[in-house]
Design a protein around this nucleic acid. Structure first.
Lengths: 235, 235
DNA sequence: TGCATATTATTTGTCGACAAGAATTCGGGC
DNA sequence: GCCCGAATTCTTGTCGACAAATAATATGCA
């Protein structure tokens, strides 16, 4: 196979991996706003970027559309899904309820291995806070709560919660240029309290902490959207 | 193929419609257990059945997999997703919570057009009960509650609830050969009470009725699973 | 100059074919 | 007769190409 010809030139990638690569990378780029809402998605451009045919690209796009991360207009363009700033209430409602439910279920159903995963995510989040890395904070915070939900062992809640956390990542990424206030450390402490409630299987406390944490986050996002420095001008 | 040639022989179907046709039909067949859990899904077989290429078939399958209705083993077979009888508790938990939340939100956020849709679904359900049509009862009951959720105007809850109602359709279809007890008429009455609470915007009553209705259904499914005639043999 | 229409161009949806992986069948050795 | 390995078959994943639908551009007319 050295001299004459190479019948299969350079597959260089395993058979079913193409879709996953494209899906994962596009998903991250959308959630980190590397691809901002409204960005056009061109199949042929992606095809040559990833050195593959349009077929696996399209499959990845269909999956992303199924999760609501991209919008497809038939026979026309496809683009990154917009963030709906006008109707935030449903998002906050769902997020708060899922925080409460998943934290409570984690206290009820967790197993030892779950606690290890939760503590690992919390350590990553604390490290991101210590490093003042806003992007890492956002991602590891979502991973921390996803791990708690995983310990709750309800796949239906988990899939909804994952979707909400993804959407939350986009909102937070939009407003956080830098983390320079005291809130991140407060989040670390609240996370610790949640872990303690889960460990001791105190379901009531877990639910209460989940609710408080959710309201904290909702309040913060709302403040960020309005602009937190709006009243600092002395009259 | 008659004389010389037919360049565009007979498309006979609009451009983007193929996927939707396959998706809708397969979805119905899965939910009505025409395709029971575990049934193998053969792409080429579907391709010749629907007279189209494998490409739109595959896209429909990717979508169904995204909703958890089919399972795909890489490089191997794809089949209708199994119903998990051992872990029903998470399903019941999620179903009950969504009944409560969506009914309450409907009482809070509904608009006049929503009420028309809800009443129309309720009329269809009542007709199915009167006709003793078990399949129609299952489908129209799910549609009724989906309409209520729609009036609640929370797309996040709606998508989870739709998925749960779909799963419920499969469970119910599995056990209901015939509807010969008094429960269907009771459901009609409970539906009417829920409508009344929604109309008067009594959120507390709506939530309570949603919960009661959910528990009614859960209890019924559990009874069906165990076998409702198990204690009828006199000792 | 402004507008309606025709033409071109771009993008998506669909197709048939090929190749890789896994399951199955077949053959050989003990 | 039974078990293990090789060849075959069968299904899926990927590819390049074509066609339809829409958007963009150009053309003709008032």
């Amino acid at each position: 196979m050295s001299a004459t010809k190479t019948p299969a030139p350079a597959p260089e990638r395993k058979r079913g991996s193409g879709v996953k690569v494209v899906y994962d990378l596009l998903r991250d780029e959308i959630l980190d706003l590397v691809l901002p809402p409204g960005s056009p998605i061109d199949e042929v451009q992606l095809a040559e970027r990833f050195q593959m045919s349009r077929t696996p690209i399209r499959e990845a796009l269909v999956r992303l559309a199924g999760e609501g991360l991209i919008d497809t207009l038939p026979n026309r363009s496809t683009m990154v899904a917009n963030l709906d700033f006008l109707n935030m209430a449903p998002f906050f409602d769902a997020l708060t309820l899922m925080y409460r439910v998943t934290t409570q279920l984690a206290a009820q159903n967790h197993r030892p291995a779950d606690l290890e995963a939760i503590r690992a995510r919390q350590a990553e989040f604390a490290a991101a806070v210590a490093a003042q890395d806003a992007l890492a904070m956002i991602a590891t915070n979502a991973a921390f709560h996803a791990a708690i939900a995983e310990a709750g062992r309800n796949p239906y809640f988990n899939s909804l919660f994952s979707r909400l956390l993804d959407e939350g990542r986009r909102f937070l990424r939009l407003y956080y240029q830098s983390y320079d206030d005291r809130l991140p450390q407060q989040f670390v402490d609240e996370h610790e309290a949640m872990i303690a409630a889960i460990v001791t299987r105190d379901t009531a406390a877990a639910e209460r902490l989940g609710k408080a944490h959710a309201e904290q986050i909702v309040e913060q996002i709302q403040k960020l959207m309005v602009g937190e420095k709006r009243l600092e001008i002395p009259l």
